[in-house]
């Protein structure tokens, strides 16, 4: 008995020490973590991407641009410098880039930081709308469907439905938290509305079916299914988070003529052109940035632009 007690005693004390450590160590770690001044730093400072650094989305888009677009790709141009504002943007002040010392990252915001504005132009021939024969659900979809690939403003030659993206500088992290604007895909009269749209990764995608027939919304990114949901007539709308950046091809497998695109970016520096081809992107940090433009049929354009510390940079790009 005595021997047993002598053996048991050190065993017990080791176990007790183990228990003590198992309680004390997590408490110490949690205490240290709570005390850490890192937690007090504003979240908007330089919060890195949740998925880590990836290839810029524009690079992904190069690989994913629709087939016909490839032949329109052009070598990128290099911007000489900041462009003078044009008459189309009279309300925008311009600052000349001087020898100012770039302020720290936190000094930039949408209100005080530089703004990139511009216009995407197309002066080439605009093909007539194509009439597609509809062979399914003509009561809802109609007998034919007209598709217009190019939306060009006759007065200004501005190209609508192009998507402009400013790439982050190497090593730069997105400065803004995810925009909460939902990306909407509405199935209506056998079309996806809108046809082209932009969104930030992490935003919510909301899918509706207004038609009295069944559709499915099949979103394909990089040859892989991002989401494929049935949209039964009268069924519930779908609400999901966008988890993949890149070019989202939206298709309905029941109605093969239904097709749309969503461009989803890791960062918030993107804009879709208006009917007159205008775009505006704020909040970009100063320095050399590459601007890329995507269009469904015309393909991609690229241009390097020097962004000043504040003021407006005007960038016009033209598909030729």
């Amino acid at each position: 008995m005595v021997r047993r007690g002598m053996v048991g005693c050190p065993t017990m004390s080791v176990q007790a020490l183990g228990r003590l450590l198992s309680i004390a160590v997590p408490i110490a770690i949690i205490g240290l973590a709570c005390w850490s001044p890192l937690l007090a730093a504003p979240q908007s400072s330089t919060k890195p991407d949740e998925t880590g650094r990836k290839a810029p989305v524009s690079q992904q888009l190069h690989g994913l641009a629709p087939g016909p677009a490839a032949k329109f790709r052009r070598p990128r141009e290099v911007s000489p410098s900041v462009v003078e504002p044009q008459a189309e943007f009279p309300g925008l002040a311009v600052s000349q880039p001087g020898n100012e010392t770039p302020p720290t990252r936190s000094a930039f915001s949408e209100s005080t930081g530089p703004v990139i504005v511009g216009r995407i132009l197309y002066r080439g021939p605009v093909p007539a709308p194509v009439q597609i024969q509809v062979n399914r659900d003509p009561d809802v979809c109609g007998l034919t469907m007209s598709t217009t690939a190019l939306s060009v403003d006759a007065a200004t030659q501005g190209l609508g439905n192009a998507v402009v993206h400013v790439e982050l500088a190497v090593g730069e992290a997105s400065a803004r938290i995810v925009a909460e604007n939902p990306a909407v895909v509405r199935n209506k009269e056998c079309r996806f509305h809108p046809h082209i749209a932009v969104a930030q990764m992490g935003a919510e995608v909301q899918i509706f079916n207004d038609d009295p027939v069944m559709h499915n919304t099949n979103i394909i990114v990089d040859n892989s299914t991002a989401l494929n949901v049935a949209m039964v007539a009268g069924g519930n709308p779908i609400k999901k988070r966008l988890k993949k950046a890149g070019l989202h091809l939206v298709k309905c497998n029941v109605h093969k003529f239904m097709q749309a695109y969503r461009l989803v970016f890791d960062d918030p520096y993107f804009s879709q052109t208006t009917e007159t081809g205008q775009f505006s992107i704020a909040g970009v940090s100063p320095g050399l940035h590459r601007i890329s433009v995507w269009h469904e049929t015309l393909g991609m354009l690229e241009k390097d632009v020097q962004v000043p510390t504040r003021g407006t940079v005007v960038v016009d790009l033209e598909y030729k």
Partner: peptide, 16 residues
């Protein structure tokens, strides 16, 4: 769940 990679869609949400 649907069969991802194919046209077969998921019905879970719309008929939840």
């Amino acid at each position: 769940t649907g069969l991802d990679g194919t046209p077969m869609p998921s019905y879970a949400d719309t008929i939840g």
